[in-house]
Design a protein around this nucleic acid. Structure first.
Lengths: 342, 342
DNA sequence: TTGAAAGCGCTACCAA
DNA sequence: TTGGTAGCGCTTTCAA
C-alpha cells in the first residue's frame, strides 16, 4: 500500500507538505494541493490509521464489552450494538468487540492497558460490576449501558425503568386489574444482579402500590413449560389474579397458555402485558402480546454519542451524562378491561 | 502508561532485552528475565498494540462487515457474531464492527486501505456482492458467511442448505404430506438476492420433487397478519395442502393462525415446519413450532478459525476452504402425520 | 548473554 | 508557502 512518502515523491513535494495538505492544519497553495491529491488518487493512497494512532496516542477505537454467559442472544442487544456502531462511525470511531464471561476481568485489565482502545461501552451492567472498577483503575473513559448500584457517578444510558413500570401498571390499573402477577426473569439472571432487573422489581412494586394493585412475583426458568407451570401455580393459589406482566420472553407464551389452561380467555378474562418483549416474540403469541417496549436504537446511539463526546472532550472534566430513554406501550391483543370494569 | 523503555530502565537492562524477554525469540538469562518481569509487574506494563502493529504491519484486527438495512435484528446473526468474536480472541485477534448499508461500498474501500484491519468477515452475503469485489481489489483476505453465485472461489462458511431443505422435506414426506406450502421470506429480502434465500427455494423444489411432494410458494410481508392472509389465500385455492414450511419468523405465527382459521387443527390436520426459526419464536407459537435449525455458533467459530488461518498462513497460497454446517430437526408440537398416514 | 540503533508511517515542531 | 526531522513504542538486525 502506498505511504505518504510515495505520495510526496510522486507529487514532487516534501512529506510534511502532504501531511498538511491532508489535515489542512497549515495552508498549502492550491497548485501544490492539487498535485498532491492527484498523486494520492493515482496511488490509491489512504492514510495509515495505525501510524496515525501511534503518533496521536489515540486509536479512535472503542471497546464494546459484551458478556457472553448471557444465555440468550437478545435481539434488543443486537439493535443497541448496530446503532452504536453506526453512530460511532459517523464520528470517525470504530467499535471493537470484546466478549468475555463475567468472571474473568483480569483479561480486560490487560487488554485495555494495551492501548488498542480509547474507551469502552459496557453492556449488561450489573449492580456490582467488576468491569467498572477495572476500567476506572486505568482511567479508561467509559459509558455504561445500564446502571450500577446507586450512587452511580458514571456516565450511563439506560431504559427509563420508572416510566416503563409505570406505563405498565397504569395500563393494567386503568383496565381494572387489582391483583397482578409479575413473571420476572429466570433465577439465573437474578443471581447476576442486573441493576435493571432489580430496579424493575422495586419500581413495579412501588407503582403497583400507587395504583392500588397487588403484585405477586414469580421467576420461572426459560421456556414455555416453566411459564405455564408458574402461572398455573399462581392462579391456583390466587384465583383473583386477573393479569400478568411478563419480563421473560422465553416464558411468555407459556404464561398465556397456562392462563388459558386454567380456563381463562386471554384477554377477556386474563390480561398479559409484556415488558421489553421483542416484537418477534410478541407477534408470535396467540393472541399477540401487548407490551411496553424500550428503544434499543436510541440507547445505542446515545451511548455512542456519549463516549465520543467524552473522548473528544480531551480529558477535560466532562459533566457526567446520565440519560434515561423512554418507553412506549405497543397495543396488540393480550390486554383488556376486567369484567368488573367493562 | 508504562512503555518498554520504562521497564528497561527499572530493570537495568536495555530496551531490546525487554523485548526479547517478552517475545522469547532470543534467550535471556533467568536472572535478567526475572528482574524484567518484576519491573513489568510493578509498572503494570502491557505492550502497546498500536506500536506493535505499526512495526509488524499487521493489526490482528478483523473487520466484521455487517449490512444494516437488514430490517430485522436476527438472533441468528447475534450468535454468529459472538461466537466469531470469542474464537478470534482465543487466537489473539479482535473483531471490529463495520456497519454499512449495502449500497455504499466506496466507504469500505477507503476503510480497508487504511490498514486498520488485516482481513474481513462478510455477513449476509448476496449473490452479487459488491463488497467481495472491493476487498479483492486490495487483496484483503476475507471469509464469507454465506455464498455468492457459483462458481464461488472464495473461502466461505455457510449453512448446508441442501441438508436443511432435505431434512425438512423428508420429515414432512414421511408424515404423509403430498402438497406443501413454502412460506418464504418477505419480498424485500428476495430483492436483495441473498444466495441463501435463492438456494433454499431451488433446493426445496428439488427435494420436494424427489419426495413426490408438490410445493406451493408464497412470500408474505413480515408480521402475523401477512402470514395469515398468505396461508388463507393459498388454502382457499388449494385445500389439498396439508403442511407449510416457513422461513419467515415474523409471519410464522400468522401461518399457524391462518390455517386454524380455515378450520384446520395444528398439527392434527395441518403441519407447520419452521426453517431456521429462532428458538424464541418457535417456542412462542401455539403449538410450539417444530423446526430445522442451523448452528450459528458453529458458523461463527468456523468463520473466525478460517480467517485466522488465512492470516496466519502468511500469504502463502492457502487452499480455499469451504465449509457447510449441518442442520438439525428440533421436534416441538406443530407437525404430525396426515390423516391418511395415521 | 546483552546492547545499540534503524525504521514501521505518521504528525507537528522548528526553520527557511 | 514549503522542507527537514524528531519521535510515538515497538521488533529485529547487527555488533559485541
Amino acid at each position: 500500500m502506498a505511504t505518504m512518502a510515495d505520495v510526496a515523491r510522486r507529487a514532487g513535494v516534501s512529506l510534511s507538505t502532504v501531511s498538511y495538505a491532508l489535515s489542512g492544519s497549515r495552508p498549502v497553495s492550491d497548485a501544490t494541493r492539487a498535485r498532491i491529491f492527484e498523486a494520492m488518487e493515482e496511488l490509491d493512497y489512504a492514510p495509515n490509521l495505525v501510524a496515525r494512532s501511534l503518533k496521536g496516542r489515540r486509536t479512535r477505537i472503542v471497546a464494546l464489552l459484551l458478556p457472553t454467559d448471557d444465555s440468550d442472544a437478545d435481539p434488543f442487544m443486537t439493535d443497541v450494538i448496530t446503532a452504536a456502531a453506526e453512530t460511532a462511525r459517523q464520528s470517525g470511531y470504530h467499535l471493537l468487540l470484546w466478549t468475555e464471561p463475567f468472571e474473568s476481568s483480569t483479561d480486560l485489565q490487560t487488554f485495555v492497558r494495551q492501548g488498542l482502545v480509547d474507551g469502552a461501552l459496557l453492556l449488561s451492567v450489573q449492580l456490582e460490576d467488576e468491569r467498572v472498577a477495572v476500567l476506572q483503575r486505568d482511567a479508561i473513559p467509559m459509558v455504561l449501558i445500564g446502571r450500577t448500584a446507586e450512587p452511580d457517578p458514571f456516565t450511563f444510558v439506560d431504559t427509563d425503568t420508572e416510566q416503563l413500570t409505570d406505563t405498565a401498571m397504569s395500563h393494567l390499573a386503568e383496565l381494572g386489574h387489582r391483583a397482578v402477577a409479575y413473571v420476572g426473569p429466570p433465577p439465573s439472571e437474578l443471581e447476576r444482579r442486573y441493576g435493571f432487573v432489580e430496579r424493575i422489581q422495586t419500581e413495579l412494586e412501588t407503582s403497583a402500590g400507587r395504583h392500588g394493585v397487588e403484585l405477586l412475583t414469580c421467576h420461572p426458568e426459560r421456556g414455555p413449560a416453566a411459564g405455564r407451570e408458574a402461572i398455573g401455580a399462581l392462579l391456583f393459589d390466587r384465583p383473583d389474579v386477573t393479569a400478568a406482566v411478563v419480563m421473560n420472553d422465553p416464558a411468555l407464551a407459556g404464561v398465556i397458555q397456562g392462563a388459558q389452561a386454567e380456563g381463562r380467555r386471554v384477554p377477556e378474562d386474563f390480561s398479559v402485558l409484556g415488558l421489553l418483549t421483542s416484537a418477534l416474540v410478541a407477534d408470535a403469541t396467540t393472541p399477540a402480546t401487548t407490551a411496553v417496549v424500550g428503544s434499543p436504537t436510541s440507547i445505542g446511539r446515545l451511548a455512542a454519542e456519549a463516549i465520543v463526546e467524552v473522548l473528544e472532550g480531551g480529558g477535560a472534566a466532562m459533566p457526567v451524562r446520565q440519560e434515561l430513554v423512554g418507553c412506549e406501550l405497543v397495543v396488540r391483543s393480550s390486554t383488556a378491561a376486567t369484567a368488573a370494569t367493562a
